[in-house]
Each structure stands twice: as structure tokens, then as C-alpha cells.
Design a protein around this nucleic acid. Sequence first.
DNA 1: AAGCACTTGTGAACGCGCGAACAAACTCGG
DNA 2: CCGAGTTTGTTCGCGCGTTCACAAGTGCTT
Lengths: 242, 242
Amino acid sequence: MSAAPSPRAARSRDGIPDATVARLPVYLRALLAYSERGTATVSSEELAAAAGVNSAKLRKDLSYLGSYGTRGVGYDVAYLVYQISRELGLTQDWACVIVGVGSLGHALANYGGFSSRGFRIVALVDADPARVGVTLAGVVVNPIEDLESIIAARAVTIGVIATPGLAAQEVCDRLVAAGVTSILNFAPVVLSVPDGVDVRKVDLSVELQILAFHAQRRSLREAEPATAKSRRAPAMVGGVTP
Amino acid sequence: MSAAPSPRAARSRDGIPDATVARLPVYLRALLAYSERGTATVSSEELAAAAGVNSAKLRKDLSYLGSYGTRGVGYDVAYLVYQISRELGLTQDWACVIVGVGSLGHALANYGGFSSRGFRIVALVDADPARVGVTLAGVVVNPIEDLESIIAARAVTIGVIATPGLAAQEVCDRLVAAGVTSILNFAPVVLSVPDGVDVRKVDLSVELQILAFHAQRRSLREAEPATAKSRRAPAMVGGVTP
DNA sequence: AAGCACTTGTGAACGCGCGAACAAACTCGG
DNA sequence: CCGAGTTTGTTCGCGCGTTCACAAGTGCTT
Ligand SMILES: NC(=O)c1ccc[n+]([C@@H]2O[C@H](COP(=O)([O-])OP(=O)(O)OC[C@H]3O[C@@H](n4cnc5c(N)ncnc54)[C@H](O)[C@@H]3O)[C@@H](O)[C@H]2O)c1
Ligand SMILES: NC(=O)c1ccc[n+]([C@@H]2O[C@H](COP(=O)([O-])OP(=O)(O)OC[C@H]3O[C@@H](n4cnc5c(N)ncnc54)[C@H](O)[C@@H]3O)[C@@H](O)[C@H]2O)c1
């Protein structure tokens, strides 16, 4: 192979930065709120405030999609909703399967906001025979043995793993082998998948521990105001200005 | 104005980057798995693989805590577990309250991994009188009116919001007013809080939409492998850059 | 005791995302 | 038709996080 000067294998995306993609859904939700309220146009300042981000960041994010705003006016709410939806792939439907219908799986299956947009739960799967046959939100729970045939028959593209951690990797492998390339994982394990498969993790425990870290830090700072130097202020010790 | 030459040697414990803090819980989980398996020491390479990160990143992350490794050997599992736990504030207990005991609140209350580490659910609160009085995982559901008194009496420091989006901001305000400075939010809204309050959001819908974006992109790429032309072709009607 | 194999800790380069500032573009009122 | 006011799109500098690469330290073997 040619000795490429920049051997970056992961630069598969020519366009939108990941950080921007992660914010687009937030913008979309804010826009839908404006839409329901009957607002026709919004400025970047307003929308940024609603989304909790900097307005310059918002404008730059939106500029990746194209020039959909009007200078001196703002953005047309309905049009921007459509453009973001299209870019995120929400104009088509996505068939999802939930594997593991325990406490969390039940909550997910019953969650209205799940299927409100293009995401449709077309199948529920569990290994426990006692759970098979139960109907949840209009969908019946199937045995885990039928996973592959269900994925093929219903053209499932998104797999949601809500099993215990021990079973997660095996379930993941079966999902991938059956052709699923997008996986949302609730189990507290690091899944290993081949290239071309996208995994996102939702980890309660991690979030709590991050909160605990900052909380402990706050309490420590309050307890010792003697060494109180706001950590934002640079030390500037011995800084001699010329 | 040039910055100080190298003032970084002194602040070994003062500033752990956020990105590092977010990974420490993952390391901790991997270490606990090693511990249960009876492994005494691990190398950065092994631990990094188990945590799904680069080994250099892992070493740098751990170096923020101190020099707890041994060259030529690796890290002592038990010792590192203790050090990370201490840094994250897991050596003390954290009292949590869950506000909103619906589908998701039920799952959270029953979740074992929640209270396994230092996090203890000391109270459940809901506005629906029909839910008040029910006992979940050994904790009785209290009316929302008692929120402030419960927080004060049980020294609650972490608030978990699992109410519908419409009620989230109000619940958040009450939590903050009652002295809670760490909030985990499951409602699909952007919470506004004063400085000094830490909010983390867990947003299912956002995760799914990010998955959908990449999935759509993959399918588009597969469909058109020949035209390497990024669809960055804007209208450019008469637009001529000088 | 000395060499060897192995691993940590970190210096330095690099790429990327963030935020401020500004010019271009549009509306509206006169 | 023009000017004032408004808002977008973009450019630029900066700081942070990631990664490579390597010197320094450790245990084992001979
Ligand atoms: N409940 C929560 O609030 C919560 C929060 C965060 C994370 N999690 C994680 O989510 C996962 C599920 O949690 P839960 O509380 O619903 O647990 P659960 O035990 O209530 O449910 C797990 C379900 O998975 C099924 N299952 C087990 N092995 C399976 C397999 N190989 N194939 C298919 N199904 C299988 C079980 O039959 C059970 O119905 C766990 O990994 C947990 O750590 C749960
Ligand atoms: N269920 C899921 O899987 C899921 C997934 C992602 C996000 N969410 C979000 O989590 C939140 C809860 O979801 P859910 O499915 O449990 O909804 P739910 O309707 O089942 O439960 C909401 C609970 O909150 C209580 N509540 C309402 N207003 C309240 C108030 N002011 N104070 C205290 N309690 C109040 C209600 O009585 C109810 O018990 C929602 O914002 C939802 O969007 C849920």
C-alpha cells in the first residue's frame, strides 16, 4: 500500500463533527417546542438559550447542514425541524428490538417518547420462559431463540440490550451476526464489536460516580477555605511581567 | 504573553480533567472484575483493553491520581481499586432521592447496581396519590409535599429526576432550593440551575438519534460507493468567492 | 552483580472543538 | 431608494484532550 502521509483510518466522516451530531437532537427538541408553541422563526440566540449552548456554537453546528437561516431574521422553525430530522435520519422509520425485558426493558417498552419519532419497537426478546408470551405496549415477548429470524423478518436495524451484564456480550454478538449495526447498550460492560458497528452506552452507575466526584470536591473545597484559591484563577506564582 | 514555563508539576491533585473523571468509573469496573477473578496485578495494556481505551490514555489518566503503578510489573488491583474509589468519593455513602416513581422510577428503585456501591436510595417521591404509600425495594413512596423535609432529614445530596418533562424544571428548582447540588436528570428537558449545582443528563432519545444518524450515513455510503463527492454541494447560485 | 525483558510515567506534537469577533446579507421604516 | 438595525455564517486564536515515543525504574535470570 502507498505510504500515506496521514494514516488516519478513523476519518470516515467527511462532514459533521461528532460533537455537533450529539447536539442536533437537543436542537431538534427545542425547535419542536417552539413549533408547538406556534413560533414561526427563532434566532440563534433564542434557540441556543433553549438548548443550553453558546449561540456561536449553535450557528456553527447548523452551518454544517447548510445555510438554512436568513440573516436579519433567524431560522424558520418548521424548515429547520425538517432539515435536522432529515440529517439525523428521522424521516425514515427505524425498527428496534429490545433484548431483555426485565425492569428496565419494561420501562423502555412502555416509554412513549421512544416510538414517538421514527423509532419503532417491533420486537421484544427475553431468555426467561416466564416472560415469553407477555404482551407489552402491543408487542409480544419472544424467546431469545427467535432473535435472528425476527431481525431478518422485521428488518431490524437497532438493537437495545437490557440484559444483565453477563449476557450482554453474547447478545451483542448475535445481534451483530444477524446484521444489526446500531446498538444501544444499558448493561454495565464494555462491548467489543467489529468495525462498522456503532455502539452507544447508557451507564447509570458511571453518571452517579461522576456526580459523586464533583460533589466530594465541592464539599472538600467548602471544608478548607484556607487554601482557597479559585481553581479557575491561574496560579501566577512568581509571574514577573516584563 | 507567554505562560509559565512548566507549572504542572505542582498540581498533582488539583485538577483532574473532566474527560479523565468520566473514564475512572469504567476503569474501576474493569478492576473489580479483575479482582473478583483473583488477579493481583494488571498492566496498563490489559486494563486498557478491558476498558476499551488506549493504554497511553489510561496511564495518563491514572497518573493524575498519583504514581500508583510499579514499573515492570503493572498496577496492584486492590490498591488501585481503593485509590480510584477514594478519588471518586465512593468511600463514603451518598444519599439519593428519586423523584417520580413511574415506569423508569420503578426500574431505578429496583436496580441492584444502584445501591451496590456507595449510592443509597433513601427516599422515593411522587406527586400521584395513587403511588404514595407503595413500598419499593424496601423504601416507601412519599408525597411530593414532603420533599424538602425528607432531603433535610436524610441528608440527601443526590437527586434523581424521573418525572415527565413538564415537571422536571420545577422539581429541579425544589431540589436545589432544598440544598441538593447533584442532579441526575432522565427527563428530556434542558434544566437550568445556578452555579455550583451539577447536572448530568441521561437521554435515551438523543442516543437513538445519534445512532440513526450514523446508521443512515452507513447505508448511504454503501448505496453510493462510486461518487466520492461529498454532498457538500450547496446551491452556490451566482456565489463567487473572490 | 549484571544484563535483560518488561512496564510505567511523561514530554511533545497534533488535531479538534470552543468561543469571540466581524463582515455579509436581509428586513423594515422613511 | 436608502440607511439603520438585526442576525447569520465564518474566520481565527486558544486551550484541551489524544496519541506517539522514549527514558527511567523494576523484577527475573544467569
Ligand atoms: N433497572 C435499572 O434501572 C437499570 C439501570 C441501569 C442499568 N441497568 C442495567 O440494565 C440491565 C437490565 O437491568 P434490569 O434491572 O432490567 O435487570 P432484570 O434482571 O430485571 O432484567 C434482565 C432481563 O434480561 C433477561 N435475560 C437474561 N439473559 C438473557 C439473554 N441471554 N438473552 C435475553 N434475555 C436475557 C432476563 O430474563 C430478564 O428478564 C442490566 O445490565 C442492568 O445492569 C438497569
Ligand atoms: N420509561 C423510559 O424508559 C424512559 C426512557 C427515557 C426517558 N424517560 C423519561 O423519564 C421520565 C419518566 O418516565 P416514565 O416512563 O417513568 O414516566 P411515567 O409517567 O411512568 O412516570 C412519571 C412519574 O412522575 C410522577 N410525577 C409527575 N409529576 C410529578 C411531580 N411534579 N413531582 C413528582 N412526581 C411527579 C408521576 O406521578 C409518575 O409516577 C420522563 O421524563 C421520560 O421522558 C423514560
